[in-house]
């Protein structure tokens, strides 16, 4: 699993490279974030949660049977809206409230 940074959306704020536990993201010469070693990403989604403009998408690599779906997340106070966008454009959103525990 890895991430892609959507350059058109990125505002170069630097929050993602601060939190990456693997120090994998840096500022490119264009002033936008870039992932230096996409194969070293472990899919923790720390950067997705920090990004204020949803410019970072997580995907599953083809080597583990990824099908092109893209996961993004948008924080709204105590709510996390997780969205999966499929290659055909179909979207699924799951909202998790941090004030509620997991059922399991």
């Amino acid at each position: 699993m890895s991430i892609e940074i959507i350059k058109d959306k990125c505002i170069g704020c630097g929050r993602c490279f601060k939190v990456c536990p693997g120090t994998l993201i840096s500022l490119g010469s264009d002033g936008k974030a870039e992932i230096k070693r996409p194969e070293r990403c472990w899919g923790c989604t720390s950067c997705l949660k920090e990004c204020p403009v949803q410019a970072i998408e997580m995907f599953l690599g083809e080597d583990i049977g990824g099908l092109g779906g893209r996961l993004t997340v948008c924080r709204e106070q105590h709510l996390l809206h997780w969205k999966v966008r499929l290659p055909d454009g179909k979207e699924t959103t799951i909202t998790v409230d941090s004030r509620n525990s997991n059922k399991y």
Binding site: M1, G43, T45, M58, F59, L60, G65, G66, L67, G68, G69, L71, V73, L80, W82, V84, L86, T92, I94, V96, N102, K103, Y104
Partner: peptide
């Protein structure tokens, strides 16, 4: 549905796998 939510709280890749497939 509860399992899909629970995995988003620790291993989001599994939820992505379930939904995209």
């Amino acid at each position: 549905e509860d399992l899909q939510k629970a995995y988003l709280n620790m291993a989001p890749s599994q939820t992505l796998r379930w939904i995209e497939s």
